[in-house]
């Protein structure tokens, strides 16, 4: 419970965060920027977990654990994605999304 702030305001914040992430994911041309956008998506959902836990089930802690879990998974996933991008860079000397179209069809 945070005094003076209702759950709706926090949901509004996380929704904005989430759609910023989606916008970034779709419009960014750089693979690293896309990765950062994904992080934004994950963070928005992590905040949602904590807030729902806090406001609706104050006696439980599952939501908090989930958010810690998501942070750990996000870290691993980011490491993996960066590794892939580095390998891709070695192949095509670029981290631009448009240069990965060679794999179509």
């Amino acid at each position: 419970m945070i005094s003076g702030i209702s759950i709706y305001e926090i949901f509004t914040l996380t929704s904005i965060l989430f759609f910023i992430g989606i916008y970034g994911f779709i419009t960014r041309k750089n693979l690293i920027s896309i990765l950062i956008s994904i992080e934004l998506l994950l963070n928005a959902s992590a905040v949602n977990f904590v807030i729902i836990n806090k406001y609706m089930y104050p006696d439980a802690l599952q939501g908090v654990y989930f958010s810690i879990f998501i942070i750990a998974v996000a870290a691993a996933e980011t490491a993996l994605a960066v590794a892939i991008i580095i390998n891709l860079y070695r192949q095509i000397s670029s981290v631009e999304a448009k240069d990965t179209e060679i794999m179509k069809y």
Binding site: I22, F25, I26, T27, A97, T100, E101, M103, K104, Y105
Partner: peptide
């Protein structure tokens, strides 16, 4: 219709979203 499968990551993400 095979042009739909452009291979562009963002196109796919856009259709998905």
């Amino acid at each position: 219709i095979k042009g739909v499968q452009s291979g562009k990551l963002q196109d796919y993400a856009f259709s998905f979203v």
